[in-house]
Protein backbone atom coordinates (compact mmCIF):
# COMPACT_ATOMS: atom_id res chain seq x y z
CA UNK A 1 0.00 0.00 0.00
CA UNK A 2 2.97 2.27 0.74
CA UNK A 3 4.24 1.77 -2.76
CA UNK A 4 0.87 2.36 -4.36
CA UNK A 5 0.27 5.61 -2.48
CA UNK A 6 3.79 6.86 -3.15
CA UNK A 7 3.64 6.05 -6.83
CA UNK A 8 0.15 7.53 -7.11
CA UNK A 9 1.47 10.80 -5.75
CA UNK A 10 4.40 10.71 -8.12
CA UNK A 11 2.08 10.08 -11.08
CA UNK A 12 -0.23 12.94 -10.11
CA UNK A 13 2.68 15.36 -9.80
CA UNK A 14 4.17 14.14 -13.05
CA UNK A 15 0.94 14.71 -14.99
CA UNK A 16 0.73 18.22 -13.64
CA UNK A 17 4.38 19.03 -14.29
CA UNK A 18 4.44 17.76 -17.86
CA UNK A 19 1.21 19.66 -18.66
CA UNK A 20 -0.58 16.49 -19.72
CA UNK A 21 -3.50 17.24 -17.42
CA UNK A 22 -3.63 20.89 -18.39
CA UNK A 23 -3.70 20.12 -22.10
CA UNK A 24 -6.39 17.45 -21.74
CA UNK A 25 -8.48 19.60 -19.44
CA UNK A 26 -8.32 22.41 -21.98
CA UNK A 27 -9.24 20.06 -24.84
CA UNK A 28 -12.29 18.69 -23.03
CA UNK A 29 -13.39 22.11 -21.84
CA UNK A 30 -13.07 23.62 -25.29
CA UNK A 31 -15.07 20.79 -26.85
CA UNK A 32 -17.58 21.04 -24.05
CA UNK A 33 -18.15 24.71 -24.88
CA UNK A 34 -17.84 24.29 -28.64
CA UNK A 35 -20.52 21.60 -28.87
CA UNK A 36 -23.56 23.78 -28.02
CA UNK A 37 -21.97 26.74 -29.77
CA UNK A 38 -21.54 24.86 -33.05
CA UNK A 39 -24.99 23.30 -32.78
CA UNK A 40 -26.57 26.69 -32.29
CA UNK A 41 -24.62 28.87 -34.67
CA UNK A 42 -23.37 26.51 -37.38
CA UNK A 43 -26.56 26.83 -39.43
CA UNK A 44 -26.33 30.62 -39.22
CA UNK A 45 -22.66 30.61 -40.15
CA UNK A 46 -23.30 28.26 -43.05
CA UNK A 47 -26.18 30.27 -44.38
CA UNK A 48 -24.11 33.42 -44.18
CA UNK A 49 -21.37 31.77 -46.20
CA UNK A 50 -23.67 30.05 -48.68
CA UNK A 51 -26.75 32.24 -48.86
CA UNK A 52 -28.77 29.95 -51.09
CA UNK A 53 -28.37 26.90 -48.86
CA UNK A 54 -31.62 25.57 -47.47
CA UNK A 55 -31.60 25.12 -43.74
CA UNK A 56 -33.64 22.44 -42.08
CA UNK A 57 -35.43 22.93 -38.83
CA UNK A 58 -34.02 25.34 -36.24
CA UNK A 59 -31.32 23.80 -33.98
CA UNK A 60 -32.45 22.36 -30.67
CA UNK A 61 -30.74 21.44 -27.40
CA UNK A 62 -30.50 17.82 -28.54
CA UNK A 63 -28.21 18.93 -31.38
CA UNK A 64 -25.80 20.29 -28.77
CA UNK A 65 -25.63 16.89 -27.11
CA UNK A 66 -25.19 15.20 -30.45
CA UNK A 67 -22.12 17.39 -31.00
CA UNK A 68 -20.89 16.65 -27.48
CA UNK A 69 -20.94 12.87 -27.96
CA UNK A 70 -19.37 13.10 -31.39
CA UNK A 71 -16.55 15.34 -30.17
CA UNK A 72 -15.77 13.72 -26.84
CA UNK A 73 -15.95 10.09 -27.98
CA UNK A 74 -13.89 10.98 -31.03
CA UNK A 75 -11.42 13.77 -30.44
CA UNK A 76 -11.50 13.90 -26.64
CA UNK A 77 -10.72 10.24 -25.99
CA UNK A 78 -8.24 10.11 -28.87
CA UNK A 79 -6.31 12.99 -27.33
CA UNK A 80 -6.36 11.15 -24.03
CA UNK A 81 -5.03 7.94 -25.54
CA UNK A 82 -2.34 9.72 -27.53
CA UNK A 83 -1.07 11.70 -24.54
CA UNK A 84 -1.20 8.75 -22.14
CA UNK A 85 0.33 6.38 -24.69
CA UNK A 86 3.76 7.34 -23.41
CA UNK A 87 2.98 6.67 -19.76
CA UNK A 88 4.98 3.42 -19.68
CA UNK A 89 7.31 3.77 -22.65
CA UNK A 90 9.16 6.72 -21.13
CA UNK A 91 9.74 4.70 -17.97
CA UNK A 92 11.00 1.74 -19.98
CA UNK A 93 13.31 3.71 -22.21
CA UNK A 94 14.86 5.65 -19.34
CA UNK A 95 14.93 2.75 -16.92
CA UNK A 96 13.43 4.80 -14.10
CA UNK A 97 11.30 1.95 -12.81
CA UNK A 98 14.27 -0.32 -12.12
CA UNK A 99 15.39 1.72 -9.14
CA UNK A 100 11.92 1.83 -7.60
CA UNK A 101 11.08 -1.82 -8.23
CA UNK A 102 14.37 -2.95 -6.71
CA UNK A 103 13.42 -0.85 -3.71
CA UNK A 104 10.41 -2.99 -3.10
CA UNK A 105 7.76 -1.17 -5.14
CA UNK A 106 5.34 -3.97 -6.11
CA UNK A 107 4.98 -4.18 -9.86
CA UNK A 108 1.21 -4.20 -9.70
CA UNK A 109 1.29 -0.97 -7.71
CA UNK A 110 2.85 0.64 -10.78
CA UNK A 111 -0.02 -0.54 -13.00
CA UNK A 112 -2.75 0.32 -10.52
CA UNK A 113 -1.32 3.75 -9.73
CA UNK A 114 -0.93 4.62 -13.41
CA UNK A 115 -4.48 3.46 -14.08
CA UNK A 116 -5.91 5.30 -11.10
CA UNK A 117 -4.29 8.57 -12.07
CA UNK A 118 -5.34 8.24 -15.72
CA UNK A 119 -8.88 7.45 -14.56
CA UNK A 120 -8.97 10.40 -12.16
CA UNK A 121 -7.74 12.81 -14.81
CA UNK A 122 -10.10 11.36 -17.40
CA UNK A 123 -13.00 11.77 -14.97
CA UNK A 124 -12.07 15.36 -14.16
CA UNK A 125 -11.64 16.30 -17.82
CA UNK A 126 -14.75 14.46 -18.97
CA UNK A 127 -17.14 15.93 -16.42
CA UNK A 128 -15.65 19.39 -16.87
CA UNK A 129 -16.52 19.07 -20.55
CA UNK A 130 -19.95 17.76 -19.65
CA UNK A 131 -20.69 20.62 -17.24
CA UNK A 132 -19.55 23.12 -19.86
CA UNK A 133 -21.93 21.65 -22.44
CA UNK A 134 -24.72 21.35 -19.90
CA UNK A 135 -24.53 24.94 -18.72
CA UNK A 136 -23.99 26.47 -22.13
CA UNK A 137 -26.86 24.41 -23.57
CA UNK A 138 -29.13 25.55 -20.75
CA UNK A 139 -28.12 29.11 -21.52
CA UNK A 140 -28.66 28.88 -25.28
CA UNK A 141 -31.92 26.94 -25.08
CA UNK A 142 -33.46 28.12 -21.84
CA UNK A 143 -36.34 26.13 -20.47
CA UNK A 144 -35.65 22.98 -22.52
CA UNK A 145 -36.19 19.83 -20.47
CA UNK A 146 -34.37 16.72 -21.62
CA UNK A 147 -34.47 13.36 -19.90
CA UNK A 148 -31.49 11.06 -19.14
CA UNK A 149 -28.88 13.73 -19.81
CA UNK A 150 -26.73 12.53 -16.90
CA UNK A 151 -27.38 8.85 -17.53
CA UNK A 152 -26.30 9.15 -21.14
CA UNK A 153 -23.11 10.91 -20.10
CA UNK A 154 -22.47 8.30 -17.44
CA UNK A 155 -22.31 5.55 -20.09
CA UNK A 156 -19.76 7.36 -22.23
CA UNK A 157 -17.73 7.99 -19.09
CA UNK A 158 -17.66 4.22 -18.46
CA UNK A 159 -16.20 3.68 -21.92
CA UNK A 160 -13.36 5.97 -20.90
CA UNK A 161 -12.34 3.42 -18.26
CA UNK A 162 -12.43 0.66 -20.86
CA UNK A 163 -10.21 2.61 -23.26
CA UNK A 164 -7.69 3.33 -20.49
CA UNK A 165 -7.57 -0.32 -19.52
CA UNK A 166 -6.87 -1.37 -23.11
CA UNK A 167 -4.29 1.40 -23.44
CA UNK A 168 -2.46 0.30 -20.31
CA UNK A 169 -2.44 -3.29 -21.53
CA UNK A 170 -0.94 -2.06 -24.79
CA UNK A 171 1.65 -0.05 -22.89
CA UNK A 172 2.67 -3.13 -20.93
CA UNK A 173 2.90 -5.36 -24.00
CA UNK A 174 4.76 -2.92 -26.24
CA UNK A 175 7.78 -0.83 -25.43
CA UNK A 176 7.06 1.99 -27.88
CA UNK A 177 4.44 4.66 -27.48
CA UNK A 178 3.34 4.38 -31.07
CA UNK A 179 2.66 0.65 -30.97
CA UNK A 180 0.73 1.00 -27.69
CA UNK A 181 -1.52 3.63 -29.27
CA UNK A 182 -1.89 1.54 -32.41
CA UNK A 183 -2.85 -1.46 -30.28
CA UNK A 184 -5.52 0.56 -28.47
CA UNK A 185 -6.83 1.98 -31.73
CA UNK A 186 -6.93 -1.51 -33.23
CA UNK A 187 -8.86 -3.03 -30.33
CA UNK A 188 -11.31 -0.11 -30.26
CA UNK A 189 -11.80 -0.48 -34.03
CA UNK A 190 -12.49 -4.21 -33.62
CA UNK A 191 -15.05 -3.49 -30.87
CA UNK A 192 -16.82 -0.91 -33.00
CA UNK A 193 -16.81 -3.23 -36.03
CA UNK A 194 -18.35 -5.97 -33.93
CA UNK A 195 -21.02 -3.40 -33.05
CA UNK A 196 -22.33 -3.67 -36.60
CA UNK A 197 -22.86 -7.43 -36.44
CA UNK A 198 -26.45 -7.86 -35.40
CA UNK A 199 -26.57 -10.54 -32.71
CA UNK A 200 -23.54 -9.02 -30.96
CA UNK A 201 -24.61 -5.41 -31.24
CA UNK A 202 -26.92 -5.61 -28.27
CA UNK A 203 -24.09 -6.68 -25.96
CA UNK A 204 -21.34 -4.59 -27.46
CA UNK A 205 -19.76 -1.87 -25.30
CA UNK A 206 -19.69 0.23 -28.46
CA UNK A 207 -23.39 0.86 -27.83
CA UNK A 208 -22.37 2.98 -24.85
CA UNK A 209 -20.78 5.49 -27.20
CA UNK A 210 -23.28 5.35 -30.04
CA UNK A 211 -26.74 5.44 -28.53
CA UNK A 212 -26.33 8.21 -25.95
CA UNK A 213 -28.24 10.74 -28.03
CA UNK A 214 -30.99 8.19 -28.64
CA UNK A 215 -31.29 7.79 -24.90
CA UNK A 216 -31.80 11.52 -24.44
CA UNK A 217 -34.24 11.77 -27.34
CA UNK A 218 -36.18 8.77 -26.06
CA UNK A 219 -35.37 6.54 -29.06
CA UNK A 220 -33.47 4.16 -26.78
CA UNK A 221 -34.20 2.94 -23.28
CA UNK A 222 -31.90 2.55 -20.27
CA UNK A 223 -32.41 -1.22 -20.26
CA UNK A 224 -30.62 -1.49 -23.62
CA UNK A 225 -27.48 -0.21 -21.93
CA UNK A 226 -27.44 -2.77 -19.18
CA UNK A 227 -25.63 -5.66 -20.89
CA UNK A 228 -23.06 -3.49 -22.69
CA UNK A 229 -22.31 -1.81 -19.34
CA UNK A 230 -21.68 -5.13 -17.62
CA UNK A 231 -19.52 -6.36 -20.49
CA UNK A 232 -17.62 -3.08 -20.65
CA UNK A 233 -16.78 -3.24 -16.94
CA UNK A 234 -15.81 -6.89 -17.29
CA UNK A 235 -13.43 -6.16 -20.17
CA UNK A 236 -11.97 -3.22 -18.22
CA UNK A 237 -11.18 -5.47 -15.26
CA UNK A 238 -9.86 -8.30 -17.41
CA UNK A 239 -7.65 -5.87 -19.33
CA UNK A 240 -6.18 -4.50 -16.11
CA UNK A 241 -5.71 -7.96 -14.71
CA UNK A 242 -3.86 -9.07 -17.84
CA UNK A 243 -1.74 -5.94 -17.69
CA UNK A 244 -0.59 -6.73 -14.13
CA UNK A 245 0.15 -10.35 -15.00
CA UNK A 246 2.14 -9.46 -18.10
CA UNK A 247 3.95 -6.69 -16.27
CA UNK A 248 5.10 -9.18 -13.62
CA UNK A 249 7.11 -10.98 -16.25
CA UNK A 250 8.26 -7.88 -18.06
CA UNK A 251 11.94 -7.13 -18.23
CA UNK A 252 12.49 -3.57 -17.06
Amino acid sequence: MNGYAAFLKKELTENMKNYRFLILFAVFLIFGLASPFLAKFMPEILSAVAADMQMGSAPVALDAWEQFYKNISGVGFSAFIILFGSCMSSEYSKGTLVLLVTKGLPRRAVIFAKYTVAAILMTACYWAGFIATYCYTAYLWPGTMLSHVFTAAFYLWLIGFLYLSILLLGCVIFKQTFTSILFTGGIVAVISLLGIVDPLARFNPFLLTSKNVDLISGAASVSEFLMPTVISIAITIIGLWFATILFDGKQL
Binding site: K10, E14, K94, G95, T96, V98, L99, V101, T102, K103, G104, L105, P106
Partner: peptide
Protein backbone atom coordinates in the same frame (compact mmCIF):
# COMPACT_ATOMS: atom_id res chain seq x y z
CA UNK B 1 11.33 -8.02 -4.43
CA UNK B 2 11.56 -9.58 -0.99
CA UNK B 3 15.31 -10.07 -0.94
CA UNK B 4 15.77 -6.61 -2.38
CA UNK B 5 15.09 -5.16 1.05
CA UNK B 6 18.67 -6.12 1.88
CA UNK B 7 20.09 -4.71 -1.31
CA UNK B 8 20.83 -1.22 -2.51
CA UNK B 9 21.25 -1.04 -6.27
CA UNK B 10 23.04 1.46 -8.43
CA UNK B 11 22.69 0.75 -12.16
CA UNK B 12 25.43 1.77 -14.60
CA UNK B 13 23.49 4.80 -15.78
CA UNK B 14 20.94 5.60 -13.06
CA UNK B 15 17.94 7.53 -14.33
CA UNK B 16 15.53 9.56 -12.26
CA UNK B 17 12.52 11.75 -12.87
Amino acid sequence: TKTNQYIGYLPDVPEFY
